[in-house]
Nucleic acid binder design. Structure first.
Lengths: 105, 105
DNA sequence: ATTTTGCGAAACCGATTGGTTTCACATATA
DNA sequence: TATATGTGAAACCAATCGGTTTCGCAAAAT
């Protein structure tokens, strides 16, 4: 099943999991404690995240620690790049507007 | 139906539409010409985008021009903010590593 | 050796998704 | 006026999603 990062962050629970793992690596049970959902549901989310390589597993005895792969987050940032130019343009326009208002006054 | 920006960008066709509208406002038929899908399918995507206010409509006779609401894109950027710190840390670590290697040599 | 714990996977389920086909309706055009 | 065009919406469909329940298995604890 081919997945991408945008699908990974589409679900709010998954975004929350990513947020948690940004602070520290955690086990499925550890993660599940932070939500009102079952460990199995978390496990399914972790599967999705693993499939698109947003997290990676570290086996430690019978526990599995999930680590965030921060590099993947950059892909989103990269996609946003094309819009960042527009923000800047908007900012310039606002700057010009403010400058004109000032001059008028 | 409550939608959010992350759901809006989850679909690749929808991301492509957003990319197109970043360049110029377009009508549903105009947009559909860029894809292998039907005008109606595009219309449904535009409905999703409209519902989460990623685009807005401008009526012009019997045509409807869809404009990108660039402000919504900033919400994604805002969410990414929490990870940006980690990137920087990573960069610092890399810097230190390179510095140490240099010193050794 | 037996029980408990941590985990993934499979089976199942209702809701949602993304697409098509068909329709209704307003606006252009002949 | 009659026809063509641009559009949203509804009905329908197979596929996917996110959740639960149940299971099997390995590792830890008793």
């Amino acid at each position: 099943m081919r997945r991408d990062i945008f699908q990974a962050i589409a679900d709010p629970t998954r975004r929350a999991i990513i947020g948690l793992l940004a602070l520290q690596a955690m086990t499925p049970n550890g993660i599940a404690e932070h939500f009102q959902t079952s460990r199995q549901a978390v496990s399914k989310h972790l599967r999705v995240l693993t499939e698109c390589e947003v997290v990676k597993q570290e086996y430690q005895g019978r526990e599995i620690y999930y680590h965030l792969e921060i590099e993947r987050m950059k892909e989103i940032d990269k996609w946003l790049e094309q819009f960042r130019k527009l923000w800047e343009t908007r900012f310039e326009q606002l700057d010009n507007l403010l400058a004109n208002l000032k001059k008028k006054k």
